[in-house]
Every structure is written in structure tokens, then in C-alpha cells.
């Protein structure tokens, strides 16, 4: 019986101590982590659209949509954060839509845990740049190894088809809901 008490006591103490340590470390780093994420979002947006001075966030069909304005309060474009499952975890994508909602101005991968060196390449410039000025009226399409033939196609990454497909799928799903939503919203 004595051993049982000693076991529970030890485990309880160690777990409590570990809980307190983690709580205090989390408190110290949380702000910094959030700032990093915000800074990342802002720098991603300004890399894709120039002259954005302010944005206003709206909820459309469960997505966060940011209306981006220049210094004279003219609407420049829309920024959408779309998320979904990748090969081994969630992928969060920033999609910039043109003002007329007919094409993508650019994308950025905000969060992903794809295999480093393979699916991880969805965060590379070469992959992301393919989405610049892509037509979206009939959805984004991906192909492998062939020449691009339509203005809505991108080339999938060799060795990371699932990750490339996931990005395309997440974007298509989100745009299907958001474009009508924005039009309705006016």
C-alpha cells in the first residue's frame, strides 16, 4: 500500500510541476507567437498586393475574408484565409482575390506540416507563383508532368502530389463558397 501512495504522489507532483512550468512558459511565448503570426499575415498580404493601408475583416460562410483598401479607401482586393487537411496535418492558405473576383492575385501558405523536402515545397516560391493571375471562374485544376494548357492550371510538385492536390482542393472549396458570398454581400 505504501508503494501505491508513493507512486501516486510522485507522478502527481511531477505532473503538477510540469503543468506549472509549461503554463508560465506558454504565457511568456504566447504573445510573441501571435505577433509572429500577425506579422506573417501582414507581410504575406503586402508581398502580394501593394499599397494596402487598412483591412476590414468579415465572416463569410464561416471563412475570414479581409477587404483590402488603399490610402484613399478604394477597395483593392480580397484576402481569404482557407484551411483544410494536407498530407499530414492542417494547411492554412492565404488567397488574394482580384477585385472582380475572376482571378487569384496570389497565394501564400501560412501554416503547414507537410513532409520537409517533399510536400514542404508547397511553401516554395516556384509553387506559389503558379497561382498568380490564375483564372478561377471554373475552379483551379492541377496537372502532372504535361505542359500547361489552360489558364486555370498549375503544375503539381514531383513527389508531393497529395500536398499539391490538397492546396488546390482547399482553394477550390473556399472559393466556391466565398465568391457568391462576397457578391451577395455587395
Amino acid at each position: 500500500m505504501k508503494v501505491l501512495y508513493k507512486m501516486s504522489l510522485t507522478l502527481g507532483l511531477v505532473a503538477t510541476f510540469s503543468g506549472f512550468t509549461l503554463a508560465s512558459i506558454y504565457q511568456k511565448t504566447e504573445l510573441k507567437i501571435r505577433e509572429n503570426k500577425e506579422r506573417e499575415f501582414e507581410s504575406s498580404v503586402s508581398n502580394l498586393v501593394s499599397g494596402v493601408v487598412r483591412n476590414s475583416e468579415r465572416e463569410i460562410e464561416g471563412y475570414s475574408v479581409f477587404y483590402l483598401y488603399d490610402k484613399d479607401s478604394h477597395l483593392l482586393s480580397y484576402a481569404v484565409i482557407a484551411g483544410g487537411n494536407g498530407y499530414q496535418g492542417e494547411i492554412k492558405i492565404l488567397v488574394i482575390l482580384s477585385k472582380d473576383l475572376k482571378s487569384i492575385k496570389g497565394i501564400d501558405i501560412l501554416e503547414s506540416v507537410e513532409t520537409p523536402g517533399l510536400g514542404g515545397k508547397i511553401t516554395s516560391k516556384d509553387f506559389k507563383n503558379q497561382f498568380k493571375n490564375l483564372e478561377v471562374s471554373s475552379g483551379v485544376d492541377y496537372i502532372k508532368g504535361r505542359e500547361l494548357s489552360n489558364p486555370n492550371q498549375i503544375q503539381a510538385i514531383t513527389g508531393a502530389t497529395i500536398s499539391s492536390l490538397a492546396v488546390v482542393k482547399i482553394i477550390n472549396l473556399a472559393l466556391d463558397e466565398i465568391i457568391p458570398g462576397i457578391k451577395k454581400d455587395g
Partner: peptide
């Protein structure tokens, strides 16, 4: 947590 706060890019590259 430390990597995420101080070196977000590296933390992203190492993933899970």
C-alpha cells in the same frame, strides 16, 4: 514554444 516564438521560420521548416 521557444522555436515558435523566436525562430518561426525554422519551426515551420521542422514541422512536427
Amino acid at each position: 514554444l521557444f522555436l515558435k516564438a523566436q525562430f518561426p521560420d525554422l519551426s515551420k521548416a521542422l514541422g512536427p
